[in-house]
Design a protein around this nucleic acid. Structure first.
Lengths: 245, 245
DNA sequence: AGAACTGTCCGGATAATCCGGACAATTAAG
DNA sequence: CTTAATTGTCCGGATTATCCGGACAGTTCT
């Protein structure tokens, strides 16, 4: 159903992968006739979804526009943004806000500290919840039925050599996280990067999670438990209070 | 052509206007049968474009994902981003990067200073080039034929009481801007806000423009000509050098 | 308990997608 | 410099996905 929309997005994603592309190149990549691809591109151009620089197309700014307007409508984003900038400044690393959407974790916003390493991660990126520190913090605070339902949706393929691939192991860790209040990512998402995450809880609902990530050298486990974890907690507390008014 | 894609985006934009909405509400707003709207929503949900919270829909994070990935592929964004943060910190106001796309100005990124007033503007927002300081800076550095072609696409309806509505007046101002190197927005986009913009030029091409906006009280014309304009120039110079390697 | 809403599902008429083919323009090769 | 190959664009009609009326069950008001 709605096959048209799906192929439209496929075309956009393909352009994104190639950075820019012509009709023939895209048609080849998508195994579709050039005439069909051309029809789509023309339609997509009319509504600002792609931009045509004499023959080669790139993705247009319409997506950015819709995406940022959507984000600004989320109260949690507006409350968290300035606090994340504080947190990034204090730690010098990456500070992010994650929410759950459709069984996956979505990074809504990342503030970048002075010393933060350059990683190729963007606002809007999605990941399986058990593969990140903030994702695990969210999972740990869902009901066990809901957490299990989510995990069952996933294929537990590893992302890095350190990614957990055993369901039982995940649940063991979730227990620990619930107890100590924060989750640690030990190079499970990116090799060489460690992070700590804490849930944002208002009433009985987990609204999202805050995390700080940095290179393993600067973010070893003792530093997390001694300092960074507390800074994240402070940030979370401020956000939780803002959300309650 | 590609009517399906167009209505899909209409639905998304309508949800955005209503923040969240149900099938019936949307069907009513769009003058379409509920069954049709339902079909679309189901398709859009499957690909992460909308999210269904038991009956009411909101826009999903897929747009944010595509938008930010697109943005990161633009060299000018990557070069300008840290400089804009500097500029925002130094001035305390809003510092933005604008590019031209499809005859309109697109704000790719805005850094927010400490004292910056809260305005409802987002990354990805588009505007007619002659209604903003950076837009005028871009226009002034296009060839006069290209500038005229762009202006002719517009309806010169005012946005605020100060918006220029006479074609001849626009071109007079573009001459001044080319001479003095920067453009000023005198409450033409937002009442109570003034701004200054400068073009980013590499070789013979205008790649974009940098601007600083603030409340008229703090951004009067003498302050712009004496101080802010120079800060913007510094920023532009750094970016231009980065782009040339 | 009834009425008026909802969101969801089905199936077929309708109309848009989809694509083969032809064309000119540009680029690559000979 | 000529030829061949490849490109983006356009057309028109067969195909098939869209589109919508109608029916249904679940909620929320009256």
């Amino acid at each position: 159903m709605t096959k048209t929309i799906e192929t439209a997005f496929n075309i956009v994603e393909t352009i994104l992968e190639l950075e820019k592309a012509g009709v023939a190149e895209l048609a080849d990549e998508l195994n579709k006739p050039t005439s069909t691809v051309h029809d789509y591109l023309q339609g997509l151009e009319e509504i600002g979804c792609v931009v045509n620089d004499n023959g080669t197309y790139r993705v247009g700014s319409r997506f950015l526009s819709i995406g940022t307007r959507m984000r600004s409508q989320l109260e949690i984003y507006e409350m968290a943004k300035p606090e994340l900038q504080n947190l990034a400044a204090k730690t010098g690393e990456h500070a992010s806000l994650m929410i759950e959407e459709n069984n996956y974790g979505v990074v809504l916003y990342t503030a970048t500290g002075e010393r933060a390493v350059q990683v190729d991660i963007h606002d809007g990126d999605i990941s399986r919840l058990h593969t990140t520190a903030p994702g695990k913090a969210i999972l740990a605070n869902f009901s066990s039925e809901r957490a299990e339902a989510i995990i069952d949706h996933y294929e537990l393929t590893p992302r890095t050599p350190h990614t957990i691939t055993e369901k039982s192991e995940i649940f063991e860790e979730l227990d620990d996280i619930r107890e100590q209040g924060y989750a640690i990512d030990r190079e499970e998402l990116f090799e060489g990067m460690q992070g700590v995450g804490r849930p944002i809880v208002v009433g009985d609902n987990v609204i999202g999670a805050i995390s700080v990530y940095g290179p393993t050298g600067r973010m070893d486990e003792s530093k997390i438990t001694e300092k960074v974890s507390d800074m994240v907690l402070e940030t979370v507390n401020v956000i939780e209070v803002s959300l309650k008014y």
